[in-house]
């Protein structure tokens, strides 16, 4: 047998072995799925390796997709921050809490837990915008971009830059100082806040 023929035989065996391995893995995976082996209950946390994997997938996905986002230059504008505060109080605080706010039934039941945004965030403003706009699958984080325009979402991001330094009283004051309530802002967009219609 020539060297070429021997090489070809070895390659064929390798291909068959890899294909058989892949098929076996797929069959085992399908069986595990069908048998309901993975517990989807939100009151049973992931093991540490799975938790790390899910977190890393989320972080990298956001980092890559938010990389080209242009951040508005006026994020520190007081009106913008106040507008974002009103929206945060209405849309976000139930899960992400606020200064002086105790954990809620929803925040304690979500899995993975919604991060407490009064603490320092590792996300850049561009990444925060991406997350607010698109949400996260299988976490309870909605895609606010479906019902809100980019301007309002950037207002929320503007407020998030300010949030970690606010005391409870400062938080309440800034929410009250908003030029419009959340529902008024929705009406301005031509949306009915109670139904989300356009």
């Amino acid at each position: 047998m020539s060297d070429l023929a021997a090489c070809w035989t070895a390659a064929r065996w390798l291909i068959v072995t890899v294909a058989a391995g892949a098929l076996l893995t797929a069959i085992v995976a399908a069986a595990l799925v069908y048998m309901g082996s993975f517990d989807v209950a939100a009151d049973k946390p992931h093991s540490e390796p799975v938790f790390w994997l899910m977190n890393t997938v989320r972080e990298r996905s956001v980092a890559i997709r938010a990389a080209d986002t242009t951040v508005p230059a006026d994020l520190a504008d007081a009106k913008r921050v106040a507008s974002g505060a009103a929206q945060y109080d209405e849309m976000c605080s139930l899960c992400h809490l606020a200064p002086g706010m105790k954990r809620t039934e929803i925040s304690r039941g979500l899995y993975p837990r919604a991060p407490e945004l009064r603490r320092k965030s590792d996300l850049t403003p561009a990444e925060q915008f991406w997350v607010v706009k698109h949400g996260f699958k299988m976490t309870g984080m909605p895609a606010w971009g479906v019902t809100h325009n980019d301007k309002l979402l950037w207002d929320i991001v503007a407020f998030l830059q300010k949030l970690p330094e606010l005391s409870p009283s400062e938080y309440q004051a800034i929410v009250k100082s908003a030029p419009k309530t959340h529902d008024e802002m929705m009406e301005d967009m031509g949306m009915d806040a109670s139904r989300g219609d356009q």
């Binding site: 009151d43 049973k44 946390p45 992931h46 304690r108 899995y111 837990r113 603490r119 320092k120």
Partner: peptide, 21 residues
């Protein structure tokens, strides 16, 4: 704090700890 020393309470606490920096 509504914590109870049982499996559900333990799991909830582990989920809280996972989310901490």
């Amino acid at each position: 704090h509504h914590v109870e020393c049982n499996e559900t309470g333990m799991n909830a606490m582990h989920a809280d700890i996972q989310a901490m920096d």
